[in-house]
Write a protein that binds this DNA or RNA. Sequence first.
DNA 1: TGGAATTTTCACAAGCTCCTGATGACTTTC
DNA 2: GAAAGTCATCAGGAGCTTGTGAAAATTCCA
Lengths: 226, 226
Amino acid sequence: MPEKILLVDDESKITRTLQLYLEQAGYKTASISDGALALPAFRHEQPDLVILDILLPHMDGWEICRQIRRESIVPIIMLTAQGEETDRIVGLELGADDYIAKPFSPREVVARVRAVFRRTQGQALQPRALQVGDIALDIEKHTAVANGMPVDLTPIEFELLVTLLQHPGQVFTRLQLLENTQDAAYDGYERAIDQHIKNLRAKLGDDARNPRYILTVYGIGYKFAP
Amino acid sequence: MPEKILLVDDESKITRTLQLYLEQAGYKTASISDGALALPAFRHEQPDLVILDILLPHMDGWEICRQIRRESIVPIIMLTAQGEETDRIVGLELGADDYIAKPFSPREVVARVRAVFRRTQGQALQPRALQVGDIALDIEKHTAVANGMPVDLTPIEFELLVTLLQHPGQVFTRLQLLENTQDAAYDGYERAIDQHIKNLRAKLGDDARNPRYILTVYGIGYKFAP
DNA sequence: TGGAATTTTCACAAGCTCCTGATGACTTTC
DNA sequence: GAAAGTCATCAGGAGCTTGTGAAAATTCCA
């Protein structure tokens, strides 16, 4: 069954374009242009994801976000005007899942929607234990064991290892790892990943020159030994 | 099946040059010079990508972009006059996929076209594994196997082999291979490819005098044994 | 609010990859 | 068969990528 997405935006040009793209991508969509009607529409449609513009007639996106959050943990993506850094911060507090600054390309929106679904459904279906070779993770308990010895990992190190272990052998670019680790699309310094890889290797007892677990793929990124 | 590209531009010098390059790169092309005819032409040709000039007789590129977007999510590349930053923003809202500022080199256009196709369909359609004869590649894992033996390839060698294996028997010029390998238009020494072919042959156990895998096509370039 | 833990950035060295230009061998053309 | 064009190969340096330590920035927690 395809996921249903509720669009709340008063610019019909934008909603029409987004609906076109999202439906092409296999999602069902519904749209509403009036902020005051967003909550009733949400209750009626029971969408799996909401895309909210901030500037709306009658009620702004923040208020809608707050109200939806009172009764649901449905993923919410906000559309913000560019350069409003405060938006991001306010939104995070209100429980939005991602932000897209205008102007955006419809394809980017589809990509973010996919990413949010991956994240939010992944959790439900994700097995609580992950084991590959000598490494075992318990996702619920947030514990790691290497060679029978418990290992203490920071949150990012843990996320990183989860990503790598979920697809052993598959190469991830630094950017992919960053995006999987950080919540939203992230545009910082890619090589921050190198530091976490270094720390992970140290904690797992891996040697960068001759690694058993986390392999470097020159010119691409990293992968977990298959 | 080769992708079809619709060119909308009233300067026949430009369309002719671009058609030459795009067809050389393996795409089918169609062109139309009158903006008012662009939409009918689009419906008739059903192209996989549209390249739109902004300055056109009878109807400008923005309007055409808008109209096409009402009925299709086909990728669109806009040709813009230089330095019009606002163009970029307007265009993003209208759903264009890329911008190329004039003056541009035909090779740059080909590179962008490839990039757009990679982005829009690459993820979904690209098969994970590629196998021809004794050679097998796994793109996700970035691994290669020749005759059952794993082979260690550098990034460019890997890309090169992917390109050749995706179209066994098809001859590629050195320039085509370079452009497939490097992201953007590349203006270096074509013979650099020879080095990579040599290294690839060595790693695959191929003999240049009597190659089984990578064949030299005298005066043209290289192809993978069909 | 402080202080510790974590994360990110920066800079540099080491290593690997890639490009270049030259040379000789081969192929085509006349 | 000679000339011209094309290809295979080599070696060295340019350029890029990675590993790593140290420091700055940020987050977390009491």
